[in-house]
Write a protein that binds this DNA or RNA. Structure first.
Length: 355
RNA sequence: UGGGGCAUGGUGCAAUGGCAGCACACCGGACUUUGAAUCCGUGGAUCUAGGUUCGAAUCCUGGUGCCCCAG
């Protein structure tokens, strides 16, 4: 604790219970904590969490700065999201937001202001290897682990990152909040994409990217037309809800075929694939796994990890051969690599394959 | 305008004289810092007019609509 005494630490304070407790723990550890609230996306008439963040900062007796980054967020994260949709992908804007906003621009600002580190309420754990380089681990609370959302960050960002909640379960965090009577102790879990909050996908796209809502045919694997879709951007691989077709069993989205604007659907048994092709890997370890080493991969934030062997191609792309087939492997989502609790790195999914 | 068959929630089916049930879809909830998946749950139907019967989705008659065969 002594070595942290007086060191300046920035904490990204959202007003929720997690970042609030993170700020509290940092302060307890002896840091000179300064909170930052980011205004990223606000809907007219919608109550923001700024007041909640201010109440927490006041309660903890720490200064709070408010950065209005709405334009930056829109130009970067939302734009990136829409661009990915236009490329027929299923983007993960939270991953990207962490890269460019929270652990990009905000971290830069923190360091420029001579903060020693930037903390957040993410559930994940950092350690350091013999060379002093950061290693990203899953959270102690496996059910809340958010290492997936941090796995696309460069190690240089991790080096200045602090995750005070690493060792705590969600229940413990709530209990700490209750114990010290934090104003945010009863905050809801954040859920939807922040810029979709309170709206549905259709309404959002109609307002911001109506060109993505081009109706087209829904076809089965035999090319038989079954109905009409309202825009490929509204669907993701493996999706069941929203297709609107009745049959003896549920239909799932098998493919989004952009050249013909066709939504290809079929039964669930047509979904599994046994390999994933990704783009270049963002490695978070110094010693890379060999082609014969079994690692674990996750293809969605809430997906169960499965064992795989990874081969790096000469292009830098990766093929992960899965020990067990997975369904819903979706271009644009992040694939994360693990060895036990340790996150080895991540890469963007390009395609699902059957090898 | 000959013969035959069919008609049940939004869709596809079940119930053959006894409280109309299932799947899919839709809607709601749980889960979830990605639109998923998964789990739980609600609502909603006997084409129409008569008749037989204690009782009709079921049997009878007419009407209407659809399908098949033959023209």
């Amino acid at each position: 604790m002594n070595k942290s005494a007086g060191k300046k630490a920035w904490v990204a304070l959202s007003g929720g219970v997690d970042s609030s407790v993170a700020a509290f723990l940092l302060k307890e550890a002896g840091y000179a904590v300064e909170a930052v609230y980011l205004r990223l996306w606000e809907l007219p008439g919608q109550q923001t969490s700024l007041q909640a963040a201010q109440a927490v900062a006041d309660y903890l007796g720490i200064p709070l700065s408010v950065f209005d980054w709405r334009q930056i967020f829109k130009n970067q994260v939302v734009e990136h999201y829409l661009t990915a949709l236009a490329r027929n992908r299923t983007p993960n804007p939270c991953v990207y937001c962490n890269q460019v906003i929270k652990w990009g621009r905000l971290l830069e600002q923190a360091l420029e202001n001579r903060a020693a580190l930037l903390a957040s309420g993410h559930y994940a754990r950092l350690e350091y290897d013999a060379a002093g380089l950061p290693l990203l681990y899953k959270a102690a609370d496996a059910s809340k682990d958010q290492s997936y959302f941090l796995a696309a960050l460069p190690r240089t960002s991790l080096a200045a990152m602090c995750l005070p909640l690493a060792a705590y379960t969600k229940a413990e965090v709530r209990s700490i909040a209750a114990e010290i009577n934090l104003p945010s102790r009863q905050s809801q879990e954040s859920e939807d994409l922040c810029f979709l909050a309170g709206k549905d996908q259709v309404a959002f796209l109609r307002e911001h990217a109506p060109h993505l809502l081009e109706p087209g045919p829904i076809e089965d694997l035999h090319g038989k037309e079954l109905g009409q879709h309202q825009g490929l951007a509204l669907y993701t691989i493996g999706q069941r809800k929203g297709i609107g077709l009745s049959a003896s069993q549920p239909y799932y989205v098998l493919a989004k075929e952009q050249t013909t604007n066709t939504l290809r659907v079929g039964w669930s048994d047509a979904l599994p694939r046994n390999a994933v092709q990704t783009g270049p890997v963002n490695w978070l370890v110094s010693q890379l796994p060999g082609a014969q080493d079994l690692v674990e991969v996750k293809i969605r934030s809430a997906a169960r990890p499965v064992q795989a062997r990874c081969k790096i191609l000469s292009t830098g792309d990766m093929i992960a051969k899965l020990e067990k087939p997975l369904r819903d492997i979706t271009a644009g989502q992040l694939l994360t690599l693990y060895q036990g609790q340790l996150c080895l790195g991540s890469a963007e999914i390009q395609a699902a394959l059957n090898l």
